[in-house]
Simulated scan of single mutants.
Amino acid sequence: MIDKKRKQGQKCATPTICPECGEYLKRNYTLELVEGKQQFVKSGWTCPSSTCEYIIKDPEELEDEAEKGTEPEDKLKKLQAEFMKTHEQLNRLAEQINEFERADQEGQKIPLRYEEKEE
């Protein structure tokens, strides 16, 4: 009898089997930016069957998602604060424009206002 020569890495590999349909799970990759370059990153295991939608996510991926939960909230607060500041500035500019238009219609001199910032 002739033994088949195994490929490298196949000797001790234990394939993961889908608990729902019994097929071998395949490795799932997602496309992410790593150091400014797009790369395929391992993200878990999926069932190749078209009827079964079984997915196992890698534990590292689950930890990363938990950490990312606070970052968008902080960014949102900063963006809201920036928005409020720019909105106030736009309102001030709109008031000045209205003053200029009123003065121009009445034929008066245009009042120039220079606001000094206190620091």
Rank of each mutant, 00 (worst) to 15 (best):
T30V: 07
C12F: 11
T16N: 03
I56Y: 08
E32H: 01
T16S: 06
A81V: 06
S43F: 01
P19F: 03
F40Y: 07
S49I: 03
P15Q: 02
W45A: 07
E115R: 09
F83K: 11
E116A: 08
I56P: 00
N91Q: 12
L31D: 05
L25I: 00
P15D: 02
T14D: 02
E115T: 09
L31V: 02
E106W: 03
I97H: 06
Y114K: 07
K85D: 14
A13Y: 09
L79Y: 13
I2R: 10
P111D: 01
A103W: 01
F100D: 04
A103S: 06
K117Y: 08
K4A: 07
M1I: 08
Q89P: 04
P59D: 14
C12I: 08
E60R: 12
N98K: 12
K109H: 03
P59K: 15
K42R: 11
V34G: 02
A66Y: 10
P59Y: 12
S50L: 13
I56R: 07
P111G: 02
D74V: 12
V34Q: 00
A81H: 12
T30Q: 08
Q39S: 06
E73I: 15
Q8V: 03
G69E: 15
C52Y: 05
H87I: 04
E35G: 03
S50E: 15
Y114A: 08
T14W: 01
C21E: 01
N28H: 08
L79S: 12
S50R: 15
E116C: 05
R6L: 09
C12T: 11
P15S: 04
E35N: 13
L93K: 07
Y29S: 04
K37M: 03
Q8W: 03
A94H: 08
R92A: 04
Q10M: 05
D3S: 03
L76T: 11
K117S: 07
Y29F: 04
C12N: 14
L79Q: 15
K77A: 11
L76K: 15
T51R: 13
L25W: 00
Q39K: 11
E99V: 09
M1V: 11
H87R: 13
E65A: 14
E101Y: 05
P19H: 00
E60L: 14
K4W: 03
Y29N: 05
V41A: 02
I97R: 07
L25H: 00
E118N: 07
E63W: 09
L33R: 06
N98C: 01
P15A: 09
E99P: 00
G69S: 10
I97A: 08
Y24A: 14
K11N: 02
E32C: 04
V41M: 04
E67Q: 15
